[in-house]
Simulated assay, not measured.
Amino acid sequence: MNTNFKKDIDLGLSAPHKTLPSKYFYDKIGDALFVEIMNMPEYYLTEAEFDIFKNQNQELIKALQLEPSTFFELVELGAGDGTKTKQLLKALDDQNYNFEYVPIDISEHALLNLKSSVASELPNVKIRPKQGDYFNVLADLKKTEHPIIVLFLGSNIGNLPDSRAKEFIHKLNDNLKIGDRVLLGVDLIKSKDIVLPAYNDAQGITKRFNLNLLTRINTELGADFDLNSFEHKPEYTEEEGIARSFLVSTKNQTVTVRSLNKSFHFTEGEKIHTETSRKYNDRILEDILGQSSLKICDRLTDSKQLFADYVLEKKNR
């Protein structure tokens, strides 16, 4: 049994305002459902960032100040299947840039698949996958003299509350050298009619994705959640710029988690907060960057102005 999972579920359900960590969405079923989410018409994020990588790869190369003759390492945090990144890799390869691709992920399975697909589709690209913690790998790379370019895409930073996003940026900053650059993908603030359907699609895939977390707790911790007694409900206002997902109890009920030897009471309408997705603009990102040495030096957006990839550079304070 995953002891961290057990501990985190206990902490979350025991809190005055119940929460479940979004990182636990991703078991085998959750992984498959998220692939479905990324391909559904309402989920604009993946397509919007892919638009930038496919149609503006020369602009990306220029914004990152890459030189064909200067060796650099292209490091991707949470690389996944690398679909977007391969557009950039191909452009760099076609123009004979001297680089190595270093994807980092906690999933060994994802890295093996990525290495295989890059070898097949882009046989000239040097790839050196690294499994583990982002910052441990970056700390090793920091010792080298050549430039490091870090990709952190998909608005993954938006899953962190602002306070933790600031901590992430400061740790990232500490593991880079002066002159190293970061390509940070973020979802832009936009109207409710665009954002909410991305988290509440017509086919109910996102609902199943959220409810699968309760199924996982039932299976792994011996709980008795009745999935029919919880509704998926996202909330978003353009003024705040933060989308939140909740599972809402439809009645007064008690859920027992056998492995914890505990029961948790839910009142009708009580929420479990499962996910946060922050949306950004220049002002919010500047606040997140705070007193770090990472400074915005460029910004590219997709054709519909839904998503942005910011280029940051570590500078002398």
Rank of each mutant, 00 (worst) to 15 (best):
N2K: 12
N2S: 10
N2D: 15
N4W: 02
D8Q: 15
D10F: 12
L11C: 08
G12P: 06
S14L: 11
T19C: 14
P21D: 10
F25V: 07
G30Q: 07
D31I: 13
D31T: 11
M38I: 13
P41I: 14
P41A: 10
E42M: 03
E47Y: 13
E47M: 14
E49P: 12
D51M: 12
A63N: 14
L64A: 12
E67Q: 12
F71Y: 15
F72T: 05
V75T: 09
L77I: 04
G78P: 04
A79W: 04
G82N: 08
T85F: 03
L89M: 11
A91V: 00
D94G: 02
Q95L: 01
Q95N: 05
N98Y: 00
F99Y: 13
F99M: 00
E108P: 03
N113F: 04
L114E: 07
S117P: 00
V118C: 09
E121P: 04
L122S: 12
P123R: 10
I127C: 02
R128N: 13
Q131Y: 02
D133G: 03
Y134F: 15
F135G: 07
N136L: 04
N136E: 09
L138E: 09
L138D: 10
D140A: 14
K143V: 13
H146N: 12
P147T: 12
I149A: 01
F152M: 09
L153P: 01
R164Y: 12
A165G: 11
A165E: 04
A165Q: 05
F168C: 09
K171C: 04
N173S: 13
L176F: 14
D180W: 15
R181L: 12
V186T: 14
D187T: 09
L188F: 10
K192V: 11
I194W: 09
V195D: 06
V195G: 00
V195E: 02
N200F: 08
N200A: 08
Q203L: 13
T206F: 03
K207W: 02
R216M: 03
N218D: 11
T219Q: 13
E220P: 01
A223L: 03
D224K: 10
D226T: 03
D226S: 10
L227A: 04
E231P: 02
P234D: 00
P234G: 04
Y236K: 11
G241P: 05
I242N: 07
A243T: 05
S245I: 04
L247R: 03
L247H: 06
N252D: 15
Q253P: 02
T254P: 00
S259N: 08
N261I: 04
N261A: 08
K262F: 07
F266P: 03
G269I: 05
G269H: 02
E270K: 01
E270L: 02
T274F: 05
E275N: 05
T276E: 07
R278C: 02
N281Y: 07
N281L: 01
L285Y: 11
E286A: 11
D287H: 03
I288S: 03
L289M: 06
G290V: 06
Q291E: 07
K295R: 15
C297Q: 14
D298M: 09
R299F: 05
D302R: 08
L306I: 05
A308V: 06
E313M: 14
K314C: 13
